[in-house]
């Protein structure tokens, strides 16, 4: 029994890592008032570019770096369109996703070795190995947590850091001010435009790491459906976490856990409840949104979405 729990937990954490990175990134982006629905496209691009780089250079560091640069650039397009050109955030984000889906699929069939008909699908590259922490790393339960790849260990650190930065530092306060009330923030001397640019790009980089974790650790290799809609689950997880990076862990564990249980059920040959389990994250999110809104309508405390989320900021109109 303890063995089963340990192995389920190990898959849960591994499945949750990519979600966690992308979710924390998107929380930061949305906190600045920018909704980025391009996560799915950016994760795909992060996955394909990191895998290609790791395949050709054998450098995991370079693979991660390139993935982050590429997705930062994609987020920059979104930032330029929505912040500078005041374009609709929903439509721009969807375009990023469609563009990223198309481009990653195209690159996946062009960047591969000639021997494989230029296809990246079906080739093996270097990937992040699991590192076992000495002594406690082979205890039950502990071995699930302390026998993971380096990106997961970094994720453990990022959760408290991201929380601390947002709630305990001046910069985090500024960020929240920009997302809540940009006009007041500007009056306080915060550069709203610059803040939004910075956090949108950071969000993109995190989505890139999420994608890279899929291609280089969780399911090593490249295929067009590698994200399996995770980019949309991330949008759901942000709501589930109530835009608080500290709470992102609960959602990612829950949804990573659903992944892990599916793994098990499919192995056991029953995929009937598994397909319905897939529905759960989305249903829970709708429910969470309703509850958050109702709570805010009747309660005093504001706990939901940043007030300025999705609204373009115009310095000029008074």
């Amino acid at each position: 029994m303890i063995g089963l729990i340990t192995s389920l937990l190990a898959i849960t954490i591994s499945a949750g890592t990519s979600l966690l990175y992308a979710t924390i990134g998107e929380i930061y982006t949305e906190r600045s008032g920018i909704l980025n629905l391009g996560i799915e496209g950016m994760m795909l691009m992060g996955a394909v570019t990191s895998f290609a780089v790791s395949y050709y250079t054998n450098s995991l560091f370079l693979a991660l770096l390139i993935a982050m640069v590429v997705t930062a650039f994609m987020a920059l397009i979104h930032a330029f369109l929505t912040i500078t050109m005041k374009a609709n955030q929903v439509v721009s984000g969807l375009s990023i996703t469609i563009f990223g889906t198309g481009l990653s699929s195209f690159l996946g069939k062009r960047l591969g070795p000639e021997s494989n008909n230029f296809n990246l699908y079906g080739v093996n590259g270097k990937n992040f190995p699991d590192i076992q922490v000495p002594l406690v790393g082979d205890w039950p339960i502990f071995s699930a947590i302390l026998n993971q790849d380096i990106l997961t260990y970094i994720a453990y650190l990022i959760i408290p850091l991201a929380w601390f930065f947002m709630y305990k530092t001046k910069k985090g306060l500024n960020l929240r001010a920009v997302g809540e009330n940009p006009r007041t923030a500007e009056a306080m001397g915060i550069n709203v435009i610059r803040t939004r640019y910075i956090y949108t790009v950071i969000g993109g980089m995190f989505a890139g790491i999420g994608g890279a974790h899929l291609a280089l650790a969780y399911t090593p290799g490249w295929n067009e459906h590698i994200t399996g809609g995770r980019g949309w689950i991330v949008i759901a997880l942000v709501i589930f976490a109530m835009w608080n990076p500290g709470k992102a862990i609960l959602g990612t564990l829950l949804f990573g856990g659903i992944n892990a249980i599916q793994f098990r059920l499919q192995a056991a040959g029953t995929d009937i409840p598994a397909s319905l389990l897939n529905m759960l994250p989305y249903l829970v999110t709708v429910l969470a949104l309703v509850l958050l809104t109702v709570y805010e309508n009747y309660g005093k405390r504001k706990i939901g979405a940043p007030s300025a989320l999705g609204k373009p900021y115009m310095k000029e109109d008074k």
Binding site: S95, I98, F99, G102, L103, S105, F106
Partner: peptide, 8 residues
């Protein structure tokens, strides 16, 4: 995927 790319 070129079609999708152009669409995006």
């Amino acid at each position: 995927a070129i079609g999708l790319l152009l669409q995006g």
